[in-house]
Write a protein that binds this DNA or RNA. Structure first.
Length: 82
DNA sequence: TTTCTGACA
DNA sequence: TGTCAGCA
């Protein structure tokens, strides 16, 4: 099969994101609220996550498992991007 | 049925 | 972070 979809092509609902990241909708929404992830919006106001966003959420989960907090991840992300 | 927002513990 | 209510 040839699924040539871009890694930034948003097509996952939060339910799929939960399954793919092992996180809860609360955590995913909170991370987005903090600006850690930037999902697209569709049908009304539904979040649409891309493969890239799913990976981003997994990265956040990994950092949390390393003893980091939202503030710590935000600071780390800021250092990486800036 | 699922998702979204806001608010509280 | 979990949970509740009302809404689309």
């Amino acid at each position: 099969m040839n699924t040539n979809i871009d890694p930034d092509l948003p097509s996952y609902s939060i339910g799929v994101a939960q399954k793919k990241t092992s996180l809860t909708a609360r955590q995913i929404r909170y991370y987005e609220q903090e600006g850690l992830v930037k999902p697209a919006r569709s049908d009304g106001n539904q979040r649409l996550y891309s493969k890239n966003d799913i990976l981003e959420l997994k990265q956040i989960k990994e950092l949390m498992g390393q003893g980091l907090s939202l503030a710590g991840i935000k600071k780390l992300k800021k250092s990486n991007e800036k």
